[in-house]
Design a protein around this nucleic acid. Structure first.
Lengths: 126, 126
DNA sequence: ACATTAAGTTAGGTTTACCTTACAATATAG
DNA sequence: CTATATTGTAAGGTAAACCTAACTTAATGT
């Protein structure tokens, strides 16, 4: 099992690679406001779990396994955030903030029900 | 700020006192499957925060501040659990399990919206 | 009353996730 | 092409939340 912190970093790595084609340790440091040594440590742990390939300055690559893992988190994040904004009418910023925390602890079944609930609500355009 | 673990223990202390009038460290140890030394440590930390008064075998008393804090958690727990079962049709067990984790990270505003959403849904008995 | 059991504490250890300070290596700017 | 700034690593430290083993103290059974 991956921790909430590592899951956050992996999610960020994945999103950043999709967006900008590459990512460096320093970007993670800045994005999460953690020290460079802490990032090094986290990247080593992610590499130990075969979620990324880390070769220092040569860059960070995400593995198949890492992509799968990150996609799961991203999916949860999106469903939570959409449910909060569209069903509960929470503002985007707060929805995002809460999705970031809840995505690490909520079960898949609840996520699926949230998704279905939102979809059927939209269909019946209530 | 109180940690998720301490919040869990305080919630359990509060609920148990309401139900059985008293609680001992050993009950927490059994309920959460953690060692007696870990409970001692946690109780000392809760006492340091003035959430309980702890005098070893003489018992555990919850302070005003502790009751307030615990009630907040209990409220969040109940709203989450009810929302999951009544709105999303999640089974009780899973709803409880997830409420236990989410209650520590979710903002009050979302909890309030969940409560209102559920109430208005019941009123219109959809 | 005394042995056993139960409950709690002490001491010392682990892992995770952070930190700072100091150093090494690489890029960039003049 | 060297000086400076950027990025990363090493070493060592902290706090939280757990653990085990060993001890103390209190309660209980016979």
């Amino acid at each position: 099992m991956i921790s909430a912190s590592l899951e956050d970093y992996l999610e960020f790595i994945h999103n950043t690679i999709l967006e900008k084609k590459e990512i460096k340790a320093i970007n993670i440091s800045k994005a999460f406001n953690i020290s460079r040594p802490s990032v090094s440590e986290a990247l080593i742990r992610l590499a130990d779990m075969d979620l990324i390939i880390y070769e220092g300055r040569k860059g960070i690559k995400i593995t198949k396994k890492g992509i799968k893992q990150a996609q799961k988190t991203v999916k949860k994040h999106k469903i939570l955030s959409d449910f909060f904004t569209e069903v509960l009418k929470i503002d985007r910023e707060q929805a995002e903030k809460n999705a970031c925390k809840i995505e690490h602890v909520i079960d898949d079944e609840i996520i699926e029900k949230m998704k279905k609930y939102k979809e059927s609500k939209l269909k019946n355009n209530e």
